[in-house]
Nucleic acid binder design. Sequence first.
RNA 1: GUGGCCAUAGUUCAGUCGGUUAGAACGCCAGGUUGUGGCCCUGGAGGUCGUGGGUUCAAAUCCCACUGGUCACCCCA
Length: 419
Amino acid sequence: MSSVNYRSIKGTKDILPTESPLWQFVESTIRSVFHQFNYKEIRTPIFESTSLFARSIGELTDIVGKEMYTFQDRSGDSITLRPEGTASAIRAYIQNNLGEALPLTKVYYLGPMFRQERPQAGRLRQFHQFGAEAIGSPTAETDVEIIAMTIEIYKRLGLTQYTLQINSVGDEECRPKYKEILRTELQKIAGSLSTESQKRIDQNPMRVLDSKDENDQKLTAGMPLITDHLNEECAKHFDRVKSLLTAYGIPFTVNGRLVRGLDYYTKTAFEITSTELGSQDALAGGGRYDLLVKELGGKQTPSVGFAAGMERLMMILEKKGFQTPIQRPKVFIAAADDAARQWVLTTTMVLRSRGIASECDLLSRSLKSQMKEADRQRAEFALVVGQMELDGGKAVLKNLTDHTQQDILLSDIVGFLNK
RNA sequence: GUGGCCAUAGUUCAGUCGGUUAGAACGCCAGGUUGUGGCCCUGGAGGUCGUGGGUUCAAAUCCCACUGGUCACCCCA
């Protein structure tokens, strides 16, 4: 390890030239799935008013409570680097009156998010998420479109070791009632629960059921689940989601203990986890949030969306040895002697301007070194040009893949390589 | 915020019981008859052994602190 003066901030990572092709490939695959589902990209600012996130994500969540990158700008306003994408998308939806132009707005986003957590496998402080929002539809059909689209992205990228879990977290009518029932039950065994879970009984009893603590799991094994306490509307909606998933041939398991971390979810909640990841095994999560738009000052607008982590997806693809087509020059033009260097440079420029990816030596290297470089760059062809070729008007074009070579008129190069 | 593990060439790693010029592989550079890559051969460059203290005749090796990395808890995508 070299002792460098500057390092990237803890929890941030450089995506290096050797890695960016995979990112670009994955990003374009994600985009094409979104486009096929007719979701359009929305690009919102990377920072917003702190209050936007506090209001939407929930004052009591860890994200808002202790993980946001919040600072005062020079005018004293409280600014926060976005910790997730939904709040910004909804803010933009309301601010730009998108709901007035269309009954249903389908948008997606892809970009960096920021949370000041302790880094570990699959978790960074600047990380990347992609996600989508269908704003303006109350139907189970929309929930399932979102879920199907998420699954389709993973299928498209060749993932197989993932599972879809779904739940319904009820609405503003049935959830409070259920929470009360659960709270009463939990209070009976409070003393035996982990301290973390004890704290949650009051604030967020549903999280106790989601505890990773084995003992907590045992103790709460027989507890009432929200799926048994949904009101008629929520139950009907949930049934419809399940039957549509089945109709679409998407396997799922119902997990009555699944809770989403953000406060704004209602009815459908889902999570996709992978067995190919470490402790941080959630690949994507999402659900319905019928109250959020109104909460942020818009009209009552039922909506559903999801968010997924790029780095976790990358980890799986890298582990599987996923290969992307490499970026390589069509031709490397090598100068056999100094007399030809000028011609080589200008010809390389001409080829590039004709749309042919070309490379030549910029380091005044020997012919042998240039050929090695051509090979290292995986150029398809190498053209060797010296004074002799310039005088004769033709040169040797070598195919570096099948090792054949042929004479070619210097005036024919553009035409040949353009084929 | 809490805890475990780790730190030696560009990279991945060896380095015995503490013993004097710190190694390998890959990568990089240069050659292998004067104009041709990949394979092969030869040679070369490249290290304050993370930093600072301590123990010792002697520290990459033992001890402490710090820094950084990493994994896990928590939480979440």
